[in-house]
Design a protein around this nucleic acid. Structure first.
Lengths: 220, 220
DNA sequence: GGGGGTGCTGTGAGTCCGCTGAGAACCTGT
DNA sequence: ACAGGTTCTCAGCGGACTCACAGCACCCCC
C-alpha cells in the first residue's frame, strides 16, 4: 500500500512517515501543495493524506484539481481548523474523509484503513474517440457499440494513441513506449500494427503524417 | 435514498427524521439495537445511522453482526463518547465513519453524502453473475438453480472473480490474493483452476484475455 | 512523367501463451 | 491403513501472436 503525505511541518511529516512505515505502508512525503498535486497525479498511490494549510497551494485547491483531472485516489484531509463549515467544505471539494489536528495516531490509522477498505476497487476512466472506445479496466474495445477483439500489442498501441490525441506520434516514440525498446525493432513493425488497427477499426481512425509519424484523425 | 436511523433518544430521533426527510431522504427509525439489526438486515437501506449507546444491543455489536452476515451497507456510528480509542473501536468493527455528539447537522449531512457517494456500489450478500450465484455465508454455489460442489480453492477463486466483475484480473494478482503468495506458485496453477471452474460452471463464464489475465464474461 | 523515398500489406517462420491429461504428494475421514 | 478428494506440477499440444521480409503502391519533388 503506497501513501502520499502532503505536509509542510517537517516534524509531523517525519513522525507520520515513521509510524505509517512501521505499520506496513510505503510512504512518500511532499512538502507543499504544488509538488503534492504533481506527485499525486503521477505516482500510483492508494491514498493521499493532505494537509489543508500548505505553502503554495491549499489542500482544498489540491483536491479540487485532482478531481478535475479525473484522479479518484482516496484523499484524507488534515487540518488545524475545526469549525464545522470547514469540514463540510473539504468534503464538498471531493475529499473522502476529514481529520482535525491534533489527532490521535490510532484514529488516523483506523480511518485510513476504513478508507482503503471501501475504496479498494477504483476504476480508471474509459478512453474514447469518435466511434471507438477502450476500457482499460476490462480491456474491452468497441467500435460503434460492437465489441472488437484486439491482441495485446494492438490494444496497447491503440491505448497510447487514445491517451495522446491531438498530437503527432513518431514511430520511434511508439517503439520506445509501446514496445519498450527503441533499437531492437524495425520501424516497419509499427506500420504493420497500425495496419492491423486500421483493418479492425476503420481506415480513417489513424492518419499518416508522412515523414513524421501518425496521429488520431480529427473528429468531425 | 433510504436511511435507517437507530437511536433510542426519542427527541433526537424525531429531529433527525424531520431534517433528513426535508433533505430528500426516506427515513426509518428503530429504537433499540435488536430491532435495528433486524431492519438493517432485511430492509434495503442506502446507509445506516447508528447510535453506540442503545438498549438491548450496543452499536458496536450491531455493526459487527451486520458485517458477519456480509451486509456491507454503509454505517455511520454516532456516540456521546469521544475518546480516541472508542472511535478506533467502532471503525475496526466495520463502521465506515464516526461522529461524536453533539454534532452539527451540516457536518452530519456532508459526511453522509460523502459516505453515500463513495459507497455507491454496496456489496450484495449473495454474489451472482449470469446463472451462477455464490453465497459467502453458506458457501453454497448454484448454476441455474442446481447446486454445484466446489473445492475450497475453486470456491475462493470464484468468489474473487464475482467480487471483481468488469475488470481484468491478472494471474499474479490471483496468486497474490487467492493463493496468498505471489512467488511460491506457478501461474499455470491458476490456469488449471480456471479450467476446473469452466468444467463445472460452463466454459463461457470466465473469459481469457490473452497476455493479461481473465475476466468474467460480460452479460448479454 | 520519372525516380527516389516512404509507407502498406501478404506471406510465413518462430515464439509464446494458455489448455489439458496424467500423476505425485498430501490431507481427511472411516 | 485405506479410499477418496484436493492441490499442485509437469509435459505436450495447438493455436494465437509477433515480427521480419520483400514486393508493391503511393506521394512528392524535380
Amino acid at each position: 500500500m503506497r501513501l502520499l503525505v502532503v505536509e509542510d511541518e517537517a516534524r509531523l511529516a517525519r513522525a507520520l512517515r515513521r509510524g505509517l512505515t512501521a505499520d506496513g505502508f510505503t510512504v512518500d512525503v511532499a512538502g507543499d501543495g504544488v509538488s503534492g498535486l504533481d506527485r499525486a497525479l503521477t505516482g500510483q498511490y492508494d491514498a493521499v493524506l493532505l494537509d489543508v494549510m500548505l505553502p503554495g497551494m491549499s489542500g482544498y485547491e489540491v483536491v479540487k484539481r485532482l478531481r478535475a483531472e479525473d484522479s479518484w485516489v482516496p484523499v484524507m484531509m488534515v487540518s488545524a481548523k475545526d469549525g464545522p463549515y470547514d469540514q463540510a467544505d473539504g468534503l464538498d471539494y471531493g475529499a473522502d474523509d476529514y481529520l482535525t489536528k491534533p489527532f490521535d495516531y490510532v484514529v488516523l490509522l483506523a480511518r485510513l484503513r476504513a478508507l482503503l477498505r471501501r475504496q479498494s476497487d477504483p476504476r480508471p476512466p474509459v478512453l474514447s474517440h469518435g466511434g471507438v472506445s477502450l476500457d482499460p479496466a476490462t480491456r474491452e474495445v468497441t467500435l460503434d457499440g460492437h465489441g472488437v477483439s484486439l491482441s495485446r500489442r494492438e490494444h496497447e498501441l491503440l491505448e497510447f494513441f487514445l491517451r495522446h490525441p491531438d498530437r503527432v506520434i513518431t514511430k520511434s516514440e511508439l517503439l520506445d513506449r509501446v514496445w519498450d525498446a527503441r533499437g531492437a525493432y524495425d520501424p516497419n513493425t509499427v506500420e504493420v500494427y497500425v495496419g492491423y488497427l486500421r483493418r479492425k477499426l476503420g481506415a480513417g481512425l489513424i492518419e499518416t503524417v508522412r515523414g513524421s509519424g501518425y496521429r488520431l484523425a480529427l473528429l468531425r
